[in-house]
Write a protein that binds this DNA or RNA. Sequence first.
DNA 1: CATGAATGAGTGTTCATTCAT
DNA 2: TATGAATGAACACTCATTCAT
Lengths: 211, 211, 211, 211
Amino acid sequence: MPKIVNHEERREQIMAAIRRVIAHGQINDATIRVIAREAGCSAGVLAHYFRDKDEMMTSALRWSHKGIRARQSEKLASLRGLAALRELLLDNLPLDEERTVETRLEVSYWSRALGSQQILDVQRQEAALLYDKIRSLLKEARDLGQIRRDVQLDDATEVFLALIDGLSVHALLYPDRLTREMAERLMLGELERLVVGTSIEDIGPSDPVPR
Amino acid sequence: MPKIVNHEERREQIMAAIRRVIAHGQINDATIRVIAREAGCSAGVLAHYFRDKDEMMTSALRWSHKGIRARQSEKLASLRGLAALRELLLDNLPLDEERTVETRLEVSYWSRALGSQQILDVQRQEAALLYDKIRSLLKEARDLGQIRRDVQLDDATEVFLALIDGLSVHALLYPDRLTREMAERLMLGELERLVVGTSIEDIGPSDPVPR
Amino acid sequence: MPKIVNHEERREQIMAAIRRVIAHGQINDATIRVIAREAGCSAGVLAHYFRDKDEMMTSALRWSHKGIRARQSEKLASLRGLAALRELLLDNLPLDEERTVETRLEVSYWSRALGSQQILDVQRQEAALLYDKIRSLLKEARDLGQIRRDVQLDDATEVFLALIDGLSVHALLYPDRLTREMAERLMLGELERLVVGTSIEDIGPSDPVPR
Amino acid sequence: MPKIVNHEERREQIMAAIRRVIAHGQINDATIRVIAREAGCSAGVLAHYFRDKDEMMTSALRWSHKGIRARQSEKLASLRGLAALRELLLDNLPLDEERTVETRLEVSYWSRALGSQQILDVQRQEAALLYDKIRSLLKEARDLGQIRRDVQLDDATEVFLALIDGLSVHALLYPDRLTREMAERLMLGELERLVVGTSIEDIGPSDPVPR
DNA sequence: CATGAATGAGTGTTCATTCAT
DNA sequence: TATGAATGAACACTCATTCAT
């Protein structure tokens, strides 16, 4: 029998290497050779696990999205409505190292998406999932009477999505101006505006996560 | 000093070529040869006007910023307070072809900024200018009694900056989801929230620009 | 000795795969991986049956020659002199799919022979066998009084060998110009020139093979 | 002004290098780096003169054909009919070093033609030119009463083409068996068969060229 | 100033081969 | 035996840069 290798596991090791490379520098640094060195293998081995570099990069993006979704699923598992929305919005900000890396990756791929339909599709699809999640949580919160009845779901969703990416890119590029604390506070402030009668603080502390 | 005029003119032709190249495809397509062809000159000539490619790309970014500032200066020349702020916020959205190209360029450079201190500095500096402008207009509007007294200037400025880039990147990548009209409406909606007693419509129509 | 039988059987499967690969495309397409896939086995297995790729390719050529010889032996088993020569000459032309594949293989290896003494030796050896066979059949035909007494055996043999490969390569590369029918007719015409007093048609029909 | 380089001259230098590389070894040895070294320049420079390697190889083949045609044009300039035909047939055999190199090149490309429509087209086109030339000279010779009235032009042309390539490939691969002298003699013998009443020797000596 | 030829490092990719399992 | 993972060199090609003209 041949050397037993978990194919998917190996792919993930390589995708993790891509992630680290992009996290350290810029996406253009992610060459086959650099990725291979970061993954601790030779350049040729990458060909066993990815058709070509495009698939490697696209897969790395999808894999990052998958990880984010898994974490958010867990975080939101026991939450509903406003509390869940609050967790989701904050989780999409680069408030710790892990999420900062995710944001770097995302921003890096935006520029690639401008020239690659495939990458654009991956991002569009993921953005649509986030859109749906936010919108459904907004609706749930409204149905639960946690936020104002007159909130326009579609508009509010778009604004939150814009704030997520806007605050994220600014916290990433200008961390001295927009600290993690400020980003979190501003996002919570926007959420509080929708809340009926009560202050956002009543929802509970952000960290640790309320359950 | 005709030489200097020609020199700068030639630089601008080249930077305009870079802009067009990035507008068509992605920033990685902007190679020396492609830029030279787009500028209608030979590849070697670029070396006379720029130290190296990094300076070329950085200069092209600065030049784009300069053009944006010039346009906004003109638009805001006869406006004060809320009306001026409104113009400024809308001008920073990709609501026409020209500004869409500017947004493409900006987003493209974000990914470069993650690996280049020089580009990062250029963007940080420009962001600081926009920050100051928005904040001072917010203050002016508040002093004029156009917006609520309790508006936190720094926080509101950050939120508007986040909305600018968040709505911009979404309008750029997902134009089917976030149309230009929606982006404009959502931005105006956020501004309206700050206005005292009156609706945003009272400020005047967006197009033509009120003077 | 069943192992040895299986071993040779496996070798033949692989060599048959090489033949099919070359038949489809060009000899440079015959990579280890492609051959393995065509043979329905893994790439590594080939190392068990051939020292290296050179031996694989050389063996495939030898195997093709062996097959051709076997077919011709059978065809000529009950023939003598002119009739046998006629069969042999026609069998060396790409007049059906099988022999077209053989010709593709042969022509492909010519170019390899220019850089590989080993392949050159294989081809030289096979060419010598064909030379001897043609010459001996010519002599037999002459001794039988079927062809003219003044035929120079060596010269005529060389001319037939040249016609075989010349007509073959042209029928292969330019089938629209030199059809199979023309190639067969021209070869028979050349043979007829040697025949005494009688027409080549007297020898008998070409298909089915006279016995 | 830039360094003045005769573009076509430089292309020819490179194509000559390709020719030499193939002449020394096999066509697969003709890699970009080897060709560049043989041409005495860096690998990158080849990109200035050829779109890609395919164009390089195809151009080298066309250039070889062009040289052959030029030589034959000169040789045949003052000849007609049988004498011209004789010169043409002999010129297409590898009877000296120059023509041996040409033959090596041609045989090498045959195998490429099996997988490249472009190369096949180049060869087919050249073969068609040679076909036309031989046929027209045969007709001229027949009209001049130099060869038999009953010669079938198309058939005879095909036979001569087959002999050219057949004798060439054998003289190339098996020079010990088929010497240059034999190849020449056999070709002349085939031509003599067509001549009326007279021996081929009456046409004149082969070298020097009769004028 | 302008040219474009030339360079050489670097790109993604392919491939024959080796080897632990 | 058989596997297929791994290697590392070689491949064609691209690119920013240099420089003689």
